[in-house]
Simulated assay, not measured.
Amino acid sequence: MTEGPGLGRAALAARLSAIDERIADAARRANRDASEITRIVVTKFHPASLVRDLHALGVREVGENRQQELTSKASEVSDLDVRWHFIGQAQTNKASAIRRSADAVHSLDRAKLADSLHRVAEDDEPLDVLIQVNLTKDEGRGGIEPADASTLAEHILSLSSLRLRGVMAVAPLDEEPASAFARLRVVADQVRLLEPSATWISAGMTGDFVEAIDAGATHLRIGSAITGPRPDRG
Score class of each variant (00 low, 15 high):
Glu145Cys: 10
Asp189Ser: 14
Ala26Asn: 12
Met168Pro: 06
Arg119Gln: 13
Leu108Glu: 00
Ala95Gln: 08
Ser107Val: 09
Ala225Lys: 11
Ser116Arg: 15
Lys44Cys: 05
Lys94Thr: 14
Val170Ala: 01
Val82Gly: 00
Ala169Pro: 01
Val105Lys: 01
Glu175Phe: 06
Ala114Ile: 02
Pro146Lys: 02
Asp138Glu: 15
Arg29Met: 06
Met168Val: 04
Met168Thr: 01
Ala203Tyr: 03
Ile23Asp: 06
Gln68Glu: 14
Leu220Tyr: 08
Val186Cys: 01
Arg39Ser: 10
Ala34Leu: 08
Ala111Asn: 01
His219Asp: 10
Glu21Thr: 15
Leu164Asp: 10
Arg110Gly: 04
Arg163Glu: 14
Ala30Asn: 12
Pro196Val: 02
Thr199Gln: 12
Asp128Glu: 14
Pro177Tyr: 08
Ala169His: 06
Val62Cys: 06
Thr227Ile: 09
Gln91Ala: 03
Asp138Ala: 14
Ala56Trp: 05
Ala11Met: 05
Gly216Phe: 08
Leu130Gln: 09
Gln91Glu: 01
Ile144Tyr: 04
Ala114Pro: 00
Ala95Thr: 04
Thr151Ala: 12
Leu162Val: 06
Leu117Lys: 07
Asp148Tyr: 00
Ala90Lys: 00
Ser49Val: 05
Glu3Ile: 05
Ile37Ser: 06
Gly142Met: 08
Leu108Lys: 03
Arg32His: 04
Val105Glu: 01
Leu220Gln: 09
Val167Met: 12
Phe209Cys: 08
Gly216Met: 09
Arg192Asp: 14
Gly204Arg: 12
Met168Ile: 02
His85Trp: 12
Arg66Gln: 11
Arg221Lys: 07
Phe86Lys: 00
Asp81Thr: 07
Val59Cys: 15
Val133Thr: 06
His46Tyr: 03
Leu57Asn: 03
Pro231Val: 13
Asp214Ser: 13
Ala30Lys: 09
Leu162Met: 10
Glu21Cys: 07
Ala212Glu: 02
Asp208Lys: 10
Asp214Arg: 14
Arg15Trp: 00
Thr206Asp: 09
Val42Phe: 12
Val41Cys: 11
Ala26Tyr: 11
Ser96Val: 02
Ile131Gln: 05
Ala24Leu: 04
Ser17Asp: 15
His46Leu: 10
Phe181Trp: 07
Arg183Asp: 14
Ala180His: 12
Ser49Asn: 13
Ile37Lys: 04
Thr199Gly: 01
Glu145His: 15
Leu159Met: 15
Ala74Val: 07
Gly63Tyr: 02
Val77Lys: 00
Ser78His: 13
Asp124Ala: 15
Gly63Glu: 03
Arg99Leu: 12
Gly216Asn: 11
Ala182Leu: 10
Arg83Phe: 07
His155Ala: 12
Met1Asn: 02
Gly166Arg: 03
Gln89Met: 01
Ile222Asn: 07
Ser75Trp: 03
Leu162Gln: 09
His46Met: 07
Pro5Ser: 05
Leu152Thr: 05
Gly142His: 06
